[in-house]
Design a protein around this nucleic acid. Structure first.
Lengths: 202, 202
DNA sequence: CAGTCACTAAAACGAACGCTCTATCTAGAG
DNA sequence: CTCTAGATAGAGCGTTCGTTTTAGTGACTG
């Protein structure tokens, strides 16, 4: 078993707790306990306190979520099938966690909306990064830039929203439905895309 | 100016605060202050404490949000245009509030996921109610039951997610994009729907 | 072998939390 | 008028919050 550093354990534990109970709902002492670290250790690695821990934790969650998206997108050639695969993987992961491990940024983002905290900035850039994964996939498949941009934004928003709905309803169905409908939506561009692909080849 | 009862002021203030800062982030004393009531009054009308206030507040928010959806849906004959109208209204309302007054249940729902509190049940039924508004609209326009169900779930999920994205990005664009794409998605069923409408008429 | 440094450990601070308690005020009934 | 129930007011309870402080540990360095 790989030995995890104390710092890493703190970040991972904080990430899990943040996505389950949000920023205000998660205490520093609870993070320390969950990470099998002491309060002193937490403040040693993060002298700036709770917000600094949260920023590191959200960035960690952003990478995890991005890896899941990338795996799903790379596993399918057709963009419509790829988007559906994202929804399926999210549904499976969500069910296996007992409906608690949802999107790692939504909860924290909503709580810090009014404020101008660093947390909000990290959440915003996480959404941007995930959108870009979808955007690149669509562009690579021959979509027009403007279509790809609109679609990528909507795909991420829909996955985000469907994840929340699935958590509240404790069912995979909202994510499954979102996957089906997103695939249909993406597929509805296919004719134009195919034509454009042929033009490029000529 | 209509005189608002103390109880109503408490519920309204709690609803606003809950959707802006979530359940744990909102204190009872803060609610009392915002409602121009005293702590004693709050516990007089809600002897069961904070959770009871939150339940009443979320139910209030649910009705407000439903009214907005209903107005948008009733304002357009074509279901695709109606869905787009929902997104537009949400975008306008969100901008006018300075990007803070988003969906009244998302924040509270996410925080109480692990628990089996009454709050979670109220949030779940709120989502159900909103879905039903879209579902009825689609059914009335001639959609097949299964299509309408899938679509209604996805429409609400997408609006939910796009609202969060718009709040984080402080821009109407995510909601606008979601509206456009949802309209396209709903519209993609139109041929089948038209045929079925004609069959019914014969 | 003393000294330094990264890290762990735990006690304690003031502030805020949800909530309970008692006291006062107001308005209609007898 | 008195009596009473509903409503308002706020001090104070125990607890937990984020943070600070102080002490102690092991390991590597000069």
């Amino acid at each position: 078993m790989a030995e995890t550093s104390t710092r890493d354990r703190i970040v991972i534990a904080a990430s899990r707790l943040l996505q389950r109970q949000g920023y205000v709902g998660t205490g520093i002492k609870q993070i320390a306990q969950e990470a099998r670290a002491t309060l002193g250790s937490v403040y040693h690695f993060f002298p700036d306190g709770k917000e600094a821990v949260a920023v590191a934790a959200i960035e960690h969650g952003e990478r995890e979520f991005a890896a899941l998206l990338r795996a799903a997108l790379d596993g399918e050639e057709d963009p419509a099938a790829a988007v559906d695969a994202c929804a399926r993987r999210l549904a499976t992961a969500l069910r296996e966690s007992g409906w608690v491990d949802g999107c790692p940024v939504t909860a924290a983002a909503l709580e810090t909306l009014g404020t101008d905290s660093e947390i909000q900035r990290v959440c915003a850039s996480a959404l941007r990064d995930w959108e870009r994964l979808v955007y690149d996939k669509l562009l690579h498949a021959g979509f027009r830039e403007e279509d790809a941009r609109d679609l990528a934004t909507t795909v991420i928003s829909t996955l985000e929203g469907a994840e929340v709905t699935a958590q509240v309803r404790r069912s995979e169905e909202p994510l499954r439905a979102a996957g089906r409908q997103l695939a249909r939506l993406v597929g509805s561009y296919e004719t134009g895309v195919a034509e454009r692909r042929d033009e490029e080849r000529s």
